[in-house]
Structures are given as structure tokens and as C-alpha cells.
């Protein structure tokens, strides 16, 4: 019988949604195969609520609650996960493919001298082997991969792809003895972005602006549509390179690859690199004045027209529908 150990990322003691998605997916796989699911929580002042992770599928939660884990370090967190893995021991280690998860997974896998299946959008068990599907070439192709002779194999799961499902008994909490770790690279400061802006990689809805918005200040129009939808603001490479909006908003091959449930592209023609970054979105909407724009080829819904005339009434209509 195998075990899937899931690393649960937390901020201020609260587990991140993407981690609960990974934990839920671990439970779905384990249920079918008769495996068990454990979780590992690393931080400082995090043990009080560790048992609650049982609701998301963990039967045992290993906790490394130490002052040295108050801020993130790949070296320290890897050491803590290795300690949990020694106690478990798992056939696979899951974590969310967040920025932290993607940083940590490489360090952890190398420490265990195993492979990592990165940023997967599907994961299954073929006998006792983990198989996964991951977008490559920025989503222009999908590779089915496995971990070769890795034992355990590390898997990072793309946020917003696997549903998080609660409902389960509290988990048994096991405090790990003090973890020995050499921590050289560490976070000394975290600066929150203004207004706590939602990140495109985590958003369920994204409204993106491209060259068709004509000027940096017109991102206000994009934001006016994003706001009533609770959406994150995305951008094409062209407008990021023009300095209209920071790179962290860029969707596409050299930006972020996203798969929200709704993606609204405004004034984006749809260069192949942009399409590669968003074409796996569940519903795609394009607003563009050029009917020949490639973005319409991937759009489920489109409006051929001037976005300056289409977006304001669209915002009004959405606000009305939201009130119904």
C-alpha cells in the first residue's frame, strides 16, 4: 500500500487554496488505489489548526513548527519535507505548482535524488506508478510523463485545475522532532503588492488587455471589467514590453501559463505565444475589432467591435446580472 505525502503551503497559518486542490487530488487517487494520504505543514505557529487538513483528505499531518521556518527557504522546507517523508514514507510527494512549490520541488527532488513531474494538469496511478500529463512548449503540446525510477516521485499540480473537495474527519497530527537544516538563502522581507492584487496564475477569471487598448491608462477600462467579476488583470507581451503594466501580469509563453474558468481577451490579436499561455482556459471570450484576429479561432464567444464601445455596456450588464 502506497502513501501520497502532500506538502501544504500556508500563509499566516491558512492553507493556500492550490494546496487544498493538490491534497484533494491525492485523496481521489488514493481512494481508488487503497492508498493513504498524509500531509506535511511547515512554518511557525501553524500546528494549532493542522488537524483541519483531515477535511481535505489527510489522515496524518506531519508538522514542522519551528521559528526557523517562519519565513520560506527552499533549503529549510526541503529538510522538513524529507523528515516527513522519512516518517511516512511516500510513493509520491505532491505539492501545488505555485511559485513557492515550483521553487521548492526542484531542490527537494535533487535532495532525494529523484525526478519531479512539474506543473501537471492530470495525474493518475498506473499500477503503483504515477503518470501525469503536463503542458509543454507552453501548452502547444501535452506530454504524458512518468518518474522513471524515481522513488518517491515529486509532482507539482497546476493551480485551478483540480477541484478542492472538503468533507472528512480531523487528521492525526504528528509533530516532527526539530529538523536539522542549513539555511543559507532565505526570505528577509515580503512586500505585499498594492491593493493585494489577485495573481493571474491563481485567478478563476482573467480579463486581459493587449495592444488594442491603445495606452497604458486604458488599463482602467480592463480593471473596470475585472472588478465586478472578481477577476485578475492579465496582459499580452506587447503591452508588457511597452511598459504599460508589470511583467507579472503577462500571459503567454514568456509570461504565465494559465487555465482559468473564464478568460476574456480584450484588444489581443492572439499571437501564437499568447495563445499558448491561455488556450487551455475553460471558456474564452475575445473582444477585438479585427474579425481576422487569430484569437477568434480559440474563442468560445467573441465580439467583433471597438472594445471602447463594447466594454462599458458589458460592465453595466454584468453588474445587473450579478444583482439578480
Amino acid at each position: 500500500m502506497g502513501c501520497i505525502l502532500t506538502f501544504v503551503e500556508q500563509r499566516g497559518g491558512v492553507p493556500r487554496k492550490a494546496s487544498l486542490e493538490a491534497l484533494s487530488q491525492a485523496r481521489r487517487l488514493a481512494q481508488g488505489a487503497g492508498w493513504t494520504v498524509c500531509a506535511v505543514l511547515v512554518g511557525h505557529g501553524v500546528k494549532e489548526r493542522a488537524g483541519e487538513l483531515g477535511a481535505w483528505g489527510a489522515t496524518t499531518v506531519y508538522v514542522a513548527d519551528e521559528e526557523k521556518f517562519a519565513s520560506y527557504s527552499a533549503e529549510g522546507y526541503s529538510a522538513a519535507i524529507v523528515a516527513a517523508a522519512n516518517a511516512c514514507p511516500p510513493a509520491a510527494i505532491f505539492m501545488a505548482a505555485t511559485i513557492t512549490g515550483r521553487d521548492l520541488s526542484g531542490r527537494l527532488a535533487a535532495r532525494l535524488r529523484v525526478g519531479c513531474l512539474a506543473d501537471v494538469v492530470a495525474v493518475s496511478l498506473a499500477g503503483d506508478r504515477v503518470q501525469a500529463v503536463r503542458p509543454v512548449y507552453s501548452g502547444k503540446a501535452l506530454a504524458t510523463v512518468d518518474g522513471g525510477n524515481s522513488s518517491p516521485v515529486v509532482v507539482t499540480l497546476r493551480p485551478n485545475v483540480f477541484p478542492a473537495e472538503g468533507g472528512g474527519a480531523p487528521a492525526q497530527v504528528v509533530e516532527l522532532p526539530p529538523v536539522e537544516a542549513t539555511i543559507r538563502s532565505k526570505v528577509i522581507e515580503v512586500k505585499a503588492s498594492e491593493g493585494g492584487e489577485l495573481d493571474v496564475a491563481e485567478a478563476d477569471i482573467i480579463v486581459s488587455g493587449g495592444r488594442g487598448i491603445k495606452a497604458a491608462e486604458n488599463f482602467a477600462l480592463i480593471r473596470s471589467l475585472a472588478e465586478p467579476l472578481g477577476a485578475a488583470v492579465g496582459a499580452s507581451r506587447a503591452v508588457v514590453d511597452a511598459g504599460w503594466i508589470p511583467h507579472k501580469h503577462q500571459v503567454g509563453q514568456t509570461g504565465k501559463v494559465v487555465s482559468p474558468s473564464l478568460y476574456i481577451a480584450c484588444g489581443i490579436s492572439g499571437a501564437i505565444q499568447h495563445l499558448a499561455g491561455m488556450s487551455s482556459s475553460k471558456v474564452i471570450v475575445a473582444i477585438n475589432k479585427d474579425p481576422e484576429a487569430p484569437i477568434f479561432k480559440v474563442a468560445d464567444y467573441g465580439v467583433v467591435g471597438d472594445l471602447f464601445q463594447v466594454i462599458p455596456p458589458l460592465v453595466e450588464e454584468i453588474k445587473k446580472l450579478k444583482q439578480e
Binding site: A109, R113, V114, G115, C116, L117, Q131, V136, G139, K140, A141, L142, A143, T144, V145, D146, G147, G148, N149, S150, V153, S279, S280, K297, V298, D300
Partner: peptide
């Protein structure tokens, strides 16, 4: 000693 293998590569389904 392989730790990761590409078993299959496919193009995403056309919309």
C-alpha cells in the same frame, strides 16, 4: 537511473 520520461506527446484537441 532515469528520473523522468516523456512517454507520449500529443497536440491539444482543436476547439
Amino acid at each position: 537511473e532515469a528520473t523522468s520520461r516523456w512517454l507520449k506527446l500529443e497536440l491539444p484537441a482543436a476547439k
